[in-house]
Each structure stands twice: as structure tokens, then as C-alpha cells.
Nucleic acid binder design. Structure first.
Lengths: 223, 223, 223, 223
DNA sequence: TATGAATGAGAGTTCATTCAT
DNA sequence: AATGAATGAACTCTCATTCAT
């Protein structure tokens, strides 16, 4: 009986080893330039074995992405699991997104490459499902938090939580993409600190959505 | 001397023909899937000739992108060349960005694929220079407009125009990317209209940056 | 000792199960396209187990062929086991070959793929021996019958029975191969019915070998 | 003007070189075991170049087959172009088929592998067309000859020429296949000379189809 | 200037077979 | 006896780029 379990565990572990190797190679080379040969070598396995565990290179790529999404989700969970006031939690969420970005730039990049139409051709349904589920979970976390802030009277009642989530999320992501790619340019050529800009952007948006009660609370938190 | 000029003109024209063909193919297939064979065929030229005018496939790709950027710039110029109040011009700018996006989705996509690290490997310095210059020109247009709005007392004095430009631009772009990729999802699964969301996002940000004078003016414009 | 026997019996049965599964897959896909994975799955066994019972894919293939040869032999035995006159038996033999062909096309095809040089590389001596033995048995049946017809004065004395057998067999086989592959073509494009052609061919050859006594007898049989 | 022609000629020549190399490799290894690498090496060209001239390995294979068919056709034409009596021409045709077989065994094998269902998957329409046309031409030659023999009163009027052609052709082919594969066996184990058997088979069939006038003529020819 | 034939490295993937358990 | 994970060589085919003409 223990045998089946152990085998199962070993199999899972092997999958993890492959993912780890794939991650390493994808981080260095990106989807196109990475080769299955390299990944196999990094995993110290034969190429054939890779295909025993993953359907295709893209399948493998998406699996690595999912790992990144999982890590990101953990950042978010941790940031919003405290008993602090809801506006602080939202602020924490923004900070944790940035922290994730800084500590996992490669994952961040892959996550925003995911929607690239090049992908999704040779991906197993299973992986695709998990991927969608992960997405939903993350959005739910954000949306629920905003809903709570509305319910508690900190954000305006006429705000649609989904809409607010998309707005905050999109602008944060876009600014982090700028930081990732052109931080130096903006800092040195234009004299603008993008990290500060990101915080400003979030503040502006959030405040613009707040009730007076929210603003009061928010300023006491910030200070 | 007339001969030299004519030759120059013909050469430029040939470059344009190639770009037009490349655009067609890149629009249909994307960077990876497009082949130089297809482009050559579309241009009714031999593959070798392509390399006489462009250093590499990526060079060609970037040149097509630049065409898109040029078109975009023309949208912006037109939208901001009127005698309307500056806040209206900023609003127009936002609208014209969205209009460009809707009328030139393929170009829009390519523009935001530009920063992809996959590119930039085999690109000629010349093309790269032109590319940067174009970028600068567009940013200048946006920044100058915001500066003017500050100078005229419509936006808060403590706002850094560059920062404001980055914020507005990034969030607009991010939302249009969402529209491009997942409009249906948000509309049908989440009941949110992303175009409306984009406008809301821009309004929120802009208003958050306005002086009282600006808000007064803005509402009179909007209504 | 009963144990040894039972084990032996079980082993034989397992071999049969594997052959049955292999047959199914080979019928559907042919030698090249069939994979050991598919066969293992069809047999509800692991791939490794297949190799416990058969040396190679080709070994397995040849074993399936032998099954076909066995079935064919049974058709022949049945067709020639009656007390009818020997010329009738020869005629029956031809009919039974055609009947076998029609009811077992897949086997028929495999039998005539057997001599393909692609095979015979990785085949166990044991299987090869059995294969030759089967062959000999079938030829013997045909040759003996012809010998009997000569002895009984129905076929000409100067006919070598082996030669006659080869001639009759080869032309029958060749025509059935035509039927198998191009029946439609001959029927629709050329207006020729190949089944009728096969019977004609056999009649012509047989009659050409007959004595006058034979011809008399033959016509009384046919009518 | 001459340039285009020369280029055309060179291109054709290159195609021929490739075919020659492919033939060499296919003769040695057969379709499955031959690799494009080997063929490229034999042709002293790069693999890519092969694909410039031929769509796939199978396309190349079929092109080699067509070469064989062409050679065979030339044998037939030569054998039937004399002013000899028509029955002699038919006899010549049979002899020339055997001669082709003996001098071009490898081609013979390939020709009868052509109908193998494995093929015909990745073959260019162009090649397939030429292939069918060749087939038709050969059958026409045989059928016309038989028709002539009927018209001239040497073969029975009730014979359908197409049917006679199929019968003669099939049995000849089948016996040559036996010679190709098992000549030794029949000679040494069974004491039968298959070449003689082939001639006998053809004689028997032909005579069985003859009118009395034909038989008279035929015997005078044979002697 | 223009051609297009030639290149050749390398891609992803498959699968018969082996072998430790 | 039975497993099935692992192998790894081999496969066909692609395509950006070069270069002789």
C-alpha cells in the first residue's frame, strides 16, 4: 500500500525536478530560445523522459508559469491575512505585488507573456484548466477585498469591485513592466523614479475611489 | 546629381514596398511564424533582395513597428492640434489612443511586443535609433501637454508631468491590452465593460491630479 | 507436475492474449504505425511484459501472421477433406483461398507483407522455424492434391506438381492482391470484374494442364 | 535568353543528381531504413537542398519508382516495336518484362512496393499524377497488343483484352516476385526452376486464349 | 541591383527496448 | 512474473542567412 504512495510521491518529485530545470533554462533563454535538449541536460534526464511528464515544450512552459502564479498567490495571501483594516490590506496587496515583482522578476515576465498568442497551441487541457483556476483565484482575492472595502464604507458604493480590481491591477502591472524594461531610462534620462510613480498611481486611483470615511482612515494608515 | 536623387528615391520606395509586404505577413502570422520566404513572395522580390534593404527579419519587424508608431503619432497630433482647452486636448489624446488601438489593433500589438527581449538581437543600430527618436517624440507630446495643463493651472503644481504621463499612458495601455485579449471574458463572465472601465480609469486619474479650477473646467467639458 | 503444466498452460494463454491484442492493433495500423504502447494497452499488460513473451515487435508481427496462416490452412483442409473428385477438390481449394481472402483481408495482406525485406531483422529463430514449417505444410497440401490429380489421370503426366502449384498459387495471389488494392479502378475505369477474372485465370491454367479425361470430368463438375 | 534555359537545365540536372543518390540509398536500405541524411550525403548536398527539390522522403521515393517505370516502359517499347507477328510481340513483351526484372531487380521491387498503403501520404500531387499517367501508358501498351492479336484472329474473340492483360501481367509479376525472394528455395528444396516455370505459365495462359490459327502461328514462332 | 540556390544547424518529438524493482 | 520509468538514438523537416552569378 505504501508502495503506490511512494511511487506517486517519487513521480511528483520527478515532475518538480523537471520543472525546476525548465525554469532555470526558460529564465535564461525565454520560450523560443530554450531547447528541450538544454532542459533535459539541466534536469540530468533524457529528452524522452521530459515528454513522459510533459506533453510539449509549451506545456512545460505553462507549468513553470503556474509555479510563478502560485508563488504570487502566496505573497497575496500572506499580505491580506492580517487583522488590519481593509484599506491597509489593499495597500498591502499592492506592496506585495511589487515585492513579488522585485523578488521574482523572471516569473513576473513569464506571467505577462502567458497571454501571448504564440502559446496555447500545444498545451494539455489539464494544464490549461489549472491555469484558469489559478487566475480566477487571484482575481477573486482582489475583488473580494475591494467588495469588503465597499461594504465597510471605505470605498464608494457606486464602484463596481470587478472594475476597480481591473483598474488597479492593470495600472500596477503596466508600471512594473516599465520598471522591468526601462527603469534606467526614466530615472536617468527623465529624472523620474518609477517605483515612486507606481505608488503614486495606486494612491491616486485608490483615493479617487474612496469615501470621505475611507480617506480619513487611509491617511491615518499612511502616516 | 538628379540621378543620385532618383536612385535614392527609388531605393526608399523599394524599402517601402518591402515594409508593406512584411506588414501584411507579420499581421497575419506574427514574428515567429512569419517567414522571409512569405515576405519575399508578398513583396514580389527574391529573398536575397530583402537582405539588401534590411539586415534581418527582426530589423524588418522593428521597421514595421515604427510605421505603426508613426501612424499613432499622427493620431495624437491630429487630436491635440485644435484650439480647444488643454484638458479637452488631454481627453482627446486618450480618445485618440483608443481610436488608434481599435483601428490598428495589429500595430498596437506589435508596439507592445517591441520591448520583448526576444527582439533586439539582430537589429541594426540605425533602425534602433529611429525607434528611440520616435518614442521620445511621442512622450514629448504627452508630457508637453500635461506641462501646459499645469502651467495653465488645471493640474496640480506638485505633479511631475513626466510622472503623470507615465501613469496615464501605462494604465491606458494595460487596459487596452486587456480589451485586446480578454474583452469577452470580462464582459461575459464578470459583467464588466472594459471600454467603459478604461474611460473610468482615465477620468479617475486625471481628476485626482486636477486643481479645483481644473475640475470645474473638466466637468463643463465632459457635459 | 500438475503445477508445471498449469504454469505452462497459463503462459501459453498469456501469449495468446498478447497475440490477440497485437492483431487488433496491427490490423488497424499496420506494422510501422502500430506501437508497442498501443499493443500493451490493448493487451492490458505493461510494455515490459510483452518483451517477456516476444523478442521484438517484428517477432510479434510474424506471430500474428502465423495465426493467419493457420486460419488459412484450416480453410484449405476443410475444402479438401471431402470425398469429391480430385479436380473438384482443386477447384474447392481455389474457392477456399478466395473465401479466406474475402473473410480475412487483413491477414491476407499481412501474409504477403511477410516476405518484405523490412521484416526478418529482429525475429527469433523459433518463430522463423514455425513459420517455415507452416509454409511447407500448406505447399504440401496443394502439391499433394495436384500429384493425386496426375496419378488419377486428370492432369497431364508431364506436369511437375510443384511447378503447377507455384503457377496456380502465384496467379491467384497476384489477382487477389489486385482486387485488394485496385478493384474499383478496374471495375469502374476499365469495366473488368476482377473476381470473374480470377476464376477465369484459374480455369484457363487448370484446363491447360488437364488431360482429355480431366477436361471431361471438369466440365461435368462445373456444370 | 540562353540563361533561363541553362538554369532550367541545371535545375533539371540537379534533380537528376538527387534522384540518383536517392536511388542508391533506397536500393540499399529501402524506404523505411533510408534517411534523408544519407541521401543528402550521397548527393553531396545539404539536407535542406533535398527539400528544395522534393517535398518529402516519400515524394523522392516515388520519383525513383517513376524512373524505374520509365525504364521498364522503354524495355516494353523496344520489345514491341518490331515488325514481327503480334503473337511474337506478346511473347517478346513477356521476355522483356523478365529481362527488365533481371537487370533491374531493385526497381522491380520498388515498383511492387508502390501500392503499399504506407506510401501516398506525403506525396505531391504532381508526382502522383505523373505516376498514374505512367501506369496507364504501360497498361495501354499491353492491352492494345492483345486487342490487335484478337483483331488479327490469333486470340479468341470472346477474350476481353483488359482481362487477358491483367491475367498475364499478374501471374508474371507474381512468379518474378517468387524468383526474387525464394528462387533458391524452390530450386534446391523443391527441384523446380522458377524461370522455366514463369515461361510455362505464360505459355499455358496464352495458348489457352488462342484460336487454332493462333496456336499454329505460335508453334511456328516458338520453334 | 537583384537573384534564388544552397546551406546546415538544430528543432521538437517518437518509440522500441531495457532494467531496476 | 510483471512492471513502467527511463532511455537515447533517430527521425523528418524548417528557415534565416549567405553568396556566386
Amino acid at each position: 500500500m505504501g508502495i503506490t504512495e511512494r511511487k506517486e510521491r517519487e513521480k511528483e518529485q520527478r515532475r518538480e525536478e523537471i520543472i525546476a530545470a525548465a525554469q532555470k533554462v526558460f529564465f535564461e533563454k525565454g520560450l523560443q530560445l530554450a531547447t528541450m535538449d538544454e532542459i533535459a541536460e539541466a534536469a540530468e534526464l533524457s529528452k524522452g523522459t521530459l515528454y513522459l511528464y510533459y506533453k510539449s515544450k509549451e506545456d512545460l512552459y505553462l507549468s513553470v508559469i503556474m509555479r510563478g502564479a502560485e508563488i504570487m498567490y502566496e505573497f497575496f495571501e500572506k499580505a491580506t491575512a492580517t487583522n488590519e483594516p481593509v484599506l491597509k490590506l489593499i495597500s498591502n496587496l499592492g506592496d506585495s505585488y511589487f515585492e513579488f515583482f522585485q523578488k521574482n522578476r523572471q516569473y513576473f515576465r513569464m506571467l505577462y507573456f502567458r497571454d501571448n498568442p504564440q502559446l496555447h497551441k500545444q498545451v494539455s487541457q489539464e494544464v490549461l484548466q489549472v491555469c484558469l483556476e489559478q487566475d480566477r483565484r487571484i482575481w477573486k482575492l482582489v475583488i473580494d477585498l475591494i467588495q469588503r472595502a465597499i461594504d465597510e464604507g471605505y470605498l464608494q458604493k457606486n464602484i463596481k469591485p470587478v472594475q476597480a480590481a481591473v483598474i488597479l491591477w492593470s495600472s500596477s502591472t503596466a508600471l512594473m513592466q516599465q520598471i522591468d524594461r526601462n527603469d534606467n531610462y526614466w530615472q536617468e534620462q527623465m529624472g523620474v523614479n518609477l517605483e515612486e510613480t507606481l505608488r503614486l498611481s495606486n494612491s491616486l486611483l485608490l483615493e479617487a475611489m474612496m469615501t470621505d470615511k475611507g480617506k480619513l482612515e487611509y491617511h491615518s494608515i499612511v502616516i
